[in-house]
């Protein structure tokens, strides 16, 4: 049994009686200790997926169907109390910008101790001790002193280390990291990513890494989900997706990497931009930007098929696949 299974998860946003679909029945699994990357352009629904898994969507967003099974139990059907005992305890979340995700009026110690004491019967002193140990694990110098400091007294990299330590406080089974390094200096980004990887490896923690940095995904994760317009359009081993992407969108993403272009020439970008939620094109949502689009793509959403090493939702890939099978039949 996988640690986490998401089944047909649908998220909508309501606005004055009208609702738009932000997440269109997505399904995926994360095994124990597995590291999964979620990539895609801004607005693809990556962060919404993360929030929905914790059932933390705030209005006007709401979950319109599907299941989030954590160790076999549906999070969405649990009582508020059960959900709370899961959050921060079994599933932890790391957010994008450490400058604003820590409460400015509480000390680091207060914010760590309260998390521990919300889930375990501990005295204040015991909780502080655990917090100190965790801060040491993420290589924070003089952790005792840090506990009494306020977030604004620390650097961005330091704060993100603290956020990671905070996520690890209760030894969770799964960490959802929503672009944990985008707000940081490039030099610190690599450090933080390495730290996160090390922590997940040594503690056997599952990781869902939401990012748009394909380089990070290839270094850290074992499996990758590519999202576009609220759907998973390609999923598989990270190595396969990076080396041999099948969906034209994923191919476009990888071709757009600066390393793929000789210095001095234009980057190969994907023309156009992601459709907005209330103007979703018919058929495959990628067809207006797809170089291979045909009439079928404009009318019908492709099904997910297994091709090469990946699962992919594309009519063109489907055609190639059926060509192969018919060849094999002959």
């Amino acid at each position: 049994m996988s640690l986490l299974s998401v089944r047909d998860l649908t998220v909508k946003f309501s606005n004055r009686g009208q609702s738009v679909t932000a997440l269109n029945g997505i399904s995926f699994d994360i095994a124990r200790g597995e590291r999964v990357g979620v990539v895609g352009e801004s607005g693809a629904g990556k962060s919404i997926t993360g929030f929905a898994m914790m059932n933390l969507l705030s209005r006007p967003g709401y979950i319109d169907g599907g299941q989030v099974l954590f160790e076999g139990k549906d999070v969405l059907k649990m009582s508020a109390r059960e959900q709370r005992s899961l959050r921060g305890n079994r599933m932890a979340m790391i957010f994008q910008d450490p400058m604003v995700t820590l409460n400015p009026v509480l000390t680091i110690g207060q914010q760590m101790v309260e998390t521990l004491r919300a889930h375990r019967k501990l005295s204040h002193e015991e909780a502080r001790q655990i917090a100190t140990v965790k801060l040491k694990e993420v290589y924070i110098p003089s952790p005792e002193a840090r506990l009494d400091q306020y977030p604004h007294e620390l650097s961005g990299g330091m704060r993100q280390r603290i956020v990671i330590a905070m996520a690890l406080l209760l030894d969770p089974q799964l960490i959802i990291a929503d672009e944990p390094t985008t707000a940081l200096d490039v030099t610190i980004q690599a450090d933080i990513m390495e730290l996160l990887l090390e922590m997940c490896r040594s503690n056997m923690v599952g990781l869902m890494l939401i990012t748009h940095d394909l380089g990070v995904v290839s270094q850290v994760t074992e499996r990758t989900l590519v999202m576009y317009a609220g759907r998973i359009i390609e999923a598989g081993k990270t190595r396969s997706i990076i080396n041999d992407p099948q969906h034209p969108y994923t191919q476009g993403l990888i071709n757009a990497l600066p390393q793929q272009t000789p210095p001095g020439s234009r980057l190969k970008q994907i023309p156009g931009s992601m459709p907005s939620l209330n103007a979703m094109p018919s058929g495959c949502p990628f067809h207006p930007r797809c170089p291979l689009a045909n009439d079928l793509c404009r009318t019908t959403m492709p099904k997910v098929v297994q091709y090469a090493d990946v699962e992919v939702a594309c009519h063109e890939v489907q055609r190639l696949q059926s060509d192969l099978t018919s060849e094999a039949a002959q």
């Binding site: 914790m54 933390l56 899961l86 932890a92 409460n103 998390t115 919300a118």
Partner: peptide, 9 residues
């Protein structure tokens, strides 16, 4: 949001 994700009441 962080406080909610930490499972605080």
């Amino acid at each position: 949001r962080t406080a909610r994700a930490k499972g605080l009441p």
